[in-house]
Design a protein around this nucleic acid. Structure first.
Length: 549
DNA sequence: ATTAGGG
DNA sequence: CCCTAAT
């Protein structure tokens, strides 16, 4: 009885030991993973690079010293984690026991059982990275991030490991000791400010951040990445605008550092957003130079940046690759999509489309052959455009039908003017100017004079309700520009531009006519040019020119 | 409301 | 095309 009891006890003990060992390993893995997970957002914060270490080739002597000291804290920690994580496994005695002999039993078993499991022991206790060999550093890296590295740069490895272990970016490149996942100054063992807070935050944040896809790719990870160069070779802070560098001195005093608490800010959506924005501006290098602007133009106009972003599909968050602190990570950039004003007008814009078709059909009576071509153009466009808003389109069409053909013009006007009252910036649907329109415009200018845009619009463009007087003016301006740029080039002979069949260039005949009208009117000052004259010109030009159209 | 001009 | 100042 007693004997069996004893045996039982011993076997139990063994099993429990084994369990505990496994548990310890699990916990380690858990923690490491959580660190890894939360590393990304946190590493967005200041990346400080201190002085280079003067010695980093010192072979490892006794860096396991403090392991036994650590055992107690390790124990409590494990217990706590155990409590929160797995309720079934937790038994205080089980936990406390094996951790005592981590240095003897756990390491070999953990690293021995499966070679794919990193040797976490190297991170246990007080680790002075400065004292590690390259191989050890690589091993430590593997233990920290769960992946191999071929990086041979000790400094980089040390920093990465320290960052990973402490979950902090505020890592000096040398002279620090990592203990219990905190950084200690090497000489004065003063704890780094705030770093004790970090593991908790990291742990909390893990759950929030877990579904972010974070994988440190190998390319971006190498120390030859841009991050590394810009930082290490330039001694930091020069072109590292991405993040303000608060703290070049890792041992900065505690008060100030607590006041500049921002570094440990939790990686909220907003945070990511901000940084990605900053990063975007930085990467594009588009420092809109206000040099050319006159003084009154300098006041910022809230213009919409034309970003062609894709709407993210419901639940799946797209990620973009980013390099953060030398890491190549995938950061969700949900918030980047349409941060500006929402596009409110697309309904009204769709609204107008059906009209165009009908209208064109209505007014197509007196049109030339060219006109028919345009019409086809319009129809195609109309059918293409509402593709994305099929559901809305049906409704709108129904409305249109109800309104009746007669009222459609009014309807369209409403639609066109609606978005203007709305604060949203609604861009008109781009309508390519057709040849017919251009000709009408030219005729109108010839008839009524350039500048009489409202007249021209009323009299010559009554059928094109979507052309405003401003449009006419703009088009005329463009035509004039075209005469100045396009005509001489064609005279010279070979047109340098690629011939794009989809874009029908304005025939030189019209262009010449525009030019003459322009010159005439700018000289003569607002008198009405005779119509016949321009007609003559047109013919002449046609005879002279390419004879096409 | 139109027009001119910059963006 | 958009926006705004000037008329």
């Amino acid at each position: 009885m007693k004997k069996s009891d004893l045996e039982d006890g011993s076997s139990k003990l063994k099993t429990t030991e084994l369990q505990a060992q496994k548990l310890g390993a699990d916990l380690e893995e858990n923690r490491l993973q959580s660190l890894d997970d939360s590393l990304c957002p946190l590493s967005l914060c200041t990346v400080v690079h201190g002085q280079q270490p003067d010695k980093f080739l010192i072979e490892q002597g006794d860096n396991n010293i403090a392991q036994q000291d650590n055992a107690s804290t390790e124990t409590t920690k494990s217990a706590v984690l155990n409590d929160s994580c797995n309720a079934e496994k937790d038994k205080a005695d089980v936990c406390s026991r094996p951790v005592d002999d981590t240095s003897t039993e756990t390491e070999p078993s953990v690293s021995g059982v499966n070679s794919s499991v990193p040797d976490f022991s190297i991170l246990r206790g007080e680790v002075c990275l400065d004292d590690l060999t390259l191989r050890e550093l690589q091993e430590a890296f593997r233990a920290t991030f769960g992946r191999q590295t071929t990086v041979k740069d000790k400094i980089w490895l040390k920093r990465r490991i320290t960052m990973g272990l402490t979950n902090s970016c505020d890592v000096p490149s040398s002279g620090c000791v990592v203990k219990d996942y905190k950084i200690f100054g090497k000489d004065a063992k003063q704890e780094m400010p705030n770093t004790d807070e970090i593991p908790k935050i990291g742990f909390q944040a893990t759950s929030l951040v877990r579904d972010q896809v974070i994988y440190p790719g190998n390319e971006g990870d190498s120390p030859s990445s841009s991050y590394y160069h810009s930082e290490d070779q330039q001694g930091s802070s020069k072109r590292f605008k991405r993040v303000p560098i608060h703290n070049d001195e890792p041992q900065g005093n505690l008060l100030t550092d607590q006041s500049t608490n921002k570094r440990t800010r939790k990686p909220t959506k907003r945070y990511i957003e901000e940084l990605s924005d900053i990063e975007t501006h930085d990467s594009t290098g588009k420092l809109s130079s206000p040099a050319k602007k006159t003084t009154h133009e300098v006041l910022l106009k809230p213009r919409v940046a034309p970003f062609h972003e894709v709407e993210c599909p419901g639940t799946i968050y797209p990620t973009r690759k980013d390099t953060l602190g030398g890491f190549s990570v995938h950061v969700p950039y949900v918030s980047r999509t349409r941060r500006g004003r929402p596009r409110k007008d697309f309904i009204s814009f769709v609204d107008r489309e059906p009209f165009v078709v009908h209208n064109e059909v209505q007014t197509a009576v007196g049109m030339t052959l060219a006109k028919e071509r345009e019409e086809g153009n319009h129809v195609r466009k109309a059918s293409k455009v509402p593709l994305t808003v099929n559901s809305d389109r049906g409704h709108i069409e129904a409305v249109d039908r109800k309104e009746g053909v007669q009222d459609q013009q009014a309807n369209v006007c409403n639609a066109a003017s609606k978005p203007k009252t709305k604060q949203g910036l609604t861009r008109k649907h781009h309508r390519a100017w057709t040849l017919c329109e251009v000709m009408k415009l030219v005729d109108g200018v010839a008839l009524y004079g350039a500048g009489k845009w409202s007249e021209i619009r009323k009299l010559s463009f009554s059928s094109y309700s979507y052309r405003t007087s401003v449009d006419l003016k703009d088009k005329w301006r463009n035509l004039i520009r075209a005469t100045q740029t396009q005509l001489p080039a064609q005279k010279d002979g070979v047109c340098p531009r690629k011939i794009n069949p989809s874009i029908v260039p304005i025939p030189p005949s019209i262009l010449l006519r525009v030019k003459e009208l322009n010159e005439l009117q700018s000289q003569g000052g607002g008198f009405t040019a005779p119509v016949k004259f321009s007609g003559q010109n047109n013919n002449v030009v046609q005879g002279k020119g390419s004879g096409f159209l």
